[in-house]
Design a protein around this nucleic acid. Structure first.
Lengths: 230, 230
DNA sequence: ATTTTTTATTGACAGTCGTCAAGATTTTCT
DNA sequence: AGAAAATCTTGACGACTGTCAATAAAAAAT
């Protein structure tokens, strides 16, 4: 039981490159160990993926480690082999969420070259997110609220907020490039607006209100029209 | 143990006027019973007030009924005398929150008659809310997130959202009246924008970032300037 | 092929949770 | 005053929680 102890001490770092191996030459031991770390990390991600499913179903407050394990192909004990504690698991899940969402609109905005098609493409993508990933995003809002209480989550949540803000700002910059008008606001403000809009629509959508998606589209269109036309 | 049974069956209604007393003449029995109901309701509110304190300290996920009782002058059993279950208590707390917040800016907007003073007054009030009621508002965002999962909370949360939207719209209408320019957006959009801004600033503020309040002021000022000047 | 290391399961632990029933205490009514 | 009703406390229940140690199973290394 040597490796886990080593990995566990390094787990919290952003990368999994071990420090005492960074220098010196690459030995056989290096390659083997790296392979093990990778495998370890793959399992971590697979488990976090399963956890993400259960979490987005039940929410943070109602999700237990046993429930997560039951919805996976593993036993509940294995979670403590791959994660130090519950916070560590949730943190890993949040990072996974980020890696999925953060390039959500990049394809759409690269494709369009004029305002109308860029607008429609973005609105479609926005609507698709609400329709297809509602459960995942309600989890995001849940975890972000947890960060207001639990300082352990704050750093990761803040980092994701920054990524999402950058994502929205790439969209705005594209609009600016296409229309020739500046996106006359800060990235933070732009993100706040679209985030507020999306959150409002999400609650409507999950309440079964069929106006949720049209409301989201109209709101976003109104904002963008106001900024980038006449 | 007669009254509680009666009251408990009526508890979930918005008012506490009993139905079988609504018609007919006002008898002595009526007055007495009403007085009891009022007293019952006062205790409910006092307990909900205590619960609100604990909840805004710990958040929904980490608050137990025992903890709430411990921070009040009562025992934990009394909570089940005044509330049917935990959801009932939380619902009552949410309603209490609403009644406090919903007129937050009405005084400010009535006082000012020109754009600069109205703007500064509103920004001051916004900043004061963030500074003085941060804990209460993080609870609101927490409970709103819970509503995304628990349908039992949705109706009350939606009602409060409507009230807050109306509150923001009264502010916007005042700005429109003072400047002579229309608030060129829907009430829902205006609320989404300020809510998004506030939420973003709240996370910053609770993370100890001293830029939180200036950011909130600048963001709000930018939006309002953009709408109501030139 | 056997030993070592890694991975996964199981069962138990010490707490906490919401809930409720039985009974003591206080208030109200006659 | 005593009787009745309302209020509050206490203690217990079954269920569930995160955690972890003991151990079995699988994989890797020698």
């Amino acid at each position: 039981m040597i490796l886990p102890a080593v990995v566990l001490t390094l787990r919290r770092g952003k990368t999994l490159v071990t420090e005492h191996m960074a220098s010196a030459t690459v030995t056989k031991f290096d390659r083997i160990s790296r392979k093990r770390v990778d495998k370890f990390n793959e399992r971590r991600i697979a488990l976090a993926e399963a956890a993400l499913l259960t979490l987005s179903d039940l929410g943070y407050a109602r999700t237990s480690l046993r429930e997560i394990a039951q919805n996976s192909e593993f036993s509940h004990g294995v979670l403590h082999y791959y994660f130090a504690d519950k916070v560590d698991l949730i943190t890993c899940c949040v990072r996974l969420y980020k890696s999925r969402c953060v390039t959500r609109y990049d394809g759409v905005i690269a494709a369009a070259t004029d305002y109308p098609s860029l607008l429609e493409g973005f609105l479609d993508a926005l609507a698709a997110t609400l329709r297809e990933e509602a459960h995942l995003h309600r989890l995001w809002y849940d975890l972000r609220s947890q960060a207001l209480f639990e300082s352990a989550f704050r750093a990761d949540v803040a980092e994701i907020e920054t990524s999402l803000e950058a994502m929205i700002w790439r969209v705005m910059s594209r609009f600016a490039a296409v229309t020739g008008k500046p996106a006359a606001m800060s990235p933070a403000l732009a993100y706040a607006i679209f985030d507020g809009l999306f959150q409002q629509s999400l609650l409507k959508h999950l309440s079964g209100n069929p106006d949720a998606i049209p409301t989201l589209r109209d709101g976003a269109r109104h904002v963008l029209d106001h900024i980038f036309t006449a």
